[in-house]
Design a binder for these strands. Structure first.
Lengths: 128, 128, 128, 128
DNA sequence: GTGGTCTAGACCACC
DNA sequence: GTGGTCTAGACCACT
C-alpha cells in the first residue's frame, strides 16, 4: 500500500496518518471502503500493531475513518458538517505558507495555476 | 517582542523560529537589521539561552539570518539564489493543503481571493 | 422500532438496552406489554440473536422486563421494592454529573428548571 | 492519592481519568497545580507508565490538564470558552438520568435538595 | 527528570 | 478475526 521512511524524524504513526490521509483525499480509498485491519497493516509494514492502532485512532478522532469493533475500519463518507475546526486550521496554515512564498517573490500566478490544476484534477475524478 | 505558548507541544525553538520568521516575512524586521542577541532574547523570554541558540542556528542554515561574531545576528537581505530547496518544500506543502481543502469542497475562488489579499498587502508595503 | 449506531464504540447490546429502557421509561412500552421476541428484534436490526438475548437477560436482571418461557418478554410493572440498588447508583451518577456542571459554572437554576420540565411532562402523561 | 479497583470491569485508564477529574472538580487539585508525573503516578499505583500516559493524554484532550514537555502536567485553569460540547453532553446525560429517576417515582424535591447541597458546598469553597 | 514514541507479546470483549 | 487494553522495558528530544 505504501512504504515508511525510516530517515524521517517524525513518529511512525504520523507518517502512517499522512499516507492514509493522502490516499483518502486523493480518492484512492473511496467512502465507506474498508481500510486494512490493524494487524494486516502492521504485518505489511513490519511494525508493531500498537503503532498502527494509534494512527487509526487519531484518524478516527480527526474524522477520516471510523472503526466498528469486530468488523474493521472504514473511510468516513465526507460530511460538510464535520471538521469545521480543521478547515479553519488549514486556512491559517495556507496563509502562513503563502506569506512566505510572497516574501520569496514567487509570482502569485504560479500559485494560482497550481491550485487550478489540483481542483480540475479533482473535478475530473468526480465525472468518472 | 513575542510570547511563547507553553501549551503548544512543539519544541520551544520551533516556536521561536516560527515567530522570528513571521517578523522577517511580514517586514517588521528589515533586511540587515539586527535581531536581539541570544542573551537578550533568552532573558526576555526567561528560557535557557541554548534554546535560542538552536533557533538562531537553524534560521541561519535556512538563510533567514546571518551571524557576525561579536556583533550579533542580522536579517539576510532577500536573494533569489538562496533557498531554492526551501521553495520546493513550500510548494509541496501547499499542494498537500490545497488537496485537503479541495477534498473538503472549499471553493477554489475562496482560496484564490485569499492569496490575492496577501500578495496585494505585500505590494502595499513595498511602496512604503 | 429503533436504529443502531455503528459509530458508537459501546457494545451493541448496551445500545439495545439503552434504547429499550428509554421506550419503557418514556411510556411508549406500557407495563405488561409484550416486547418484540429475540428473533423478531434480531431480524429487524439484522444482527445476531445472541446479542439481543444478552440485552434482554441484562434488562431482566435489572428488573425492567420479565420473561415467560414460550410466551415472550414483558415490561415489568413499576414496583417500589424493585431496584433500590439501581436507585442508589443513579443518585451517585447524578452527584458526579452535577459536580462537574457546578465546576463549569452552570447556574443551578438551569438544572432545576430542566428537572421541573421532565417531571411535569411525566405528570401530564399520567393523566392520560 | 487514590486507589484502583481491580474488580471494576472498565479499563484502568478510565478509572484513573475519573479519579483525577474528581480531584480537579472537587477542588482538591487547584488550577495550575502540578499533578504527579507519569512515572510517579505509575509507581504509586504500581501499574505501567503507558497506562498513566494514556489517561493523562485523554484528560489533556478533554481540557482538564495540560502538559509541558520536560516540566510536568498541570491542572487547566477553568475557562468558560472551553468545552461547550462537553457541557451539552452532560446536559443530555442529566436528562436521561432524571427521566429514569422520575420513572422510579423519586420525588423531584429529593433531587433538587441534592443539587442545592452540591452547589452550596462549592460556594463555601469559593469563600475560602 | 519529563513527556512522548515504539516494540514484542499477551489478553479481552465482541460478533 | 477485529478493535481495544495492558505490561515490561527501551529509547528519544527537550529543558
Amino acid at each position: 500500500m505504501f512504504q515508511l521512511d525510516y530517515l524521517d524524524h517524525r513518529p511512525l504513526y504520523e507518517q502512517i496518518k499522512e499516507k492514509l490521509k493522502a490516499l483518502i483525499i486523493s480518492g484512492v480509498l473511496k467512502p465507506n471502503e474498508r481500510v486494512p485491519s490493524v494487524r494486516e497493516m502492521a504485518q505489511s509494514l513490519t511494525i508493531n500493531p500498537n503503532t498502527i492502532q494509534k494512527a487509526y485512532k487519531d484518524l478516527e478522532l480527526e474524522g477520516y475513518i471510523y472503526a466498528i469493533r469486530a468488523k474493521g475500519s472504514f473511510v468516513t463518507p465526507f460530511n460538510d458538517k464535520v471538521n469545521q475546526a480543521r478547515r479553519g486550521d488549514l486556512m491559517l496554515e495556507i496563509d502562513k505558507l503563502v506569506s512566505e512564498l510572497a516574501y520569496m517573490n514567487i509570482p502569485k500566478e504560479q500559485l494560482i495555476s497550481r491550485i487550478e490544476a489540483i481542483y480540475s484534477k479533482k473535478e475530473g475524478e468526480k465525472i468518472d
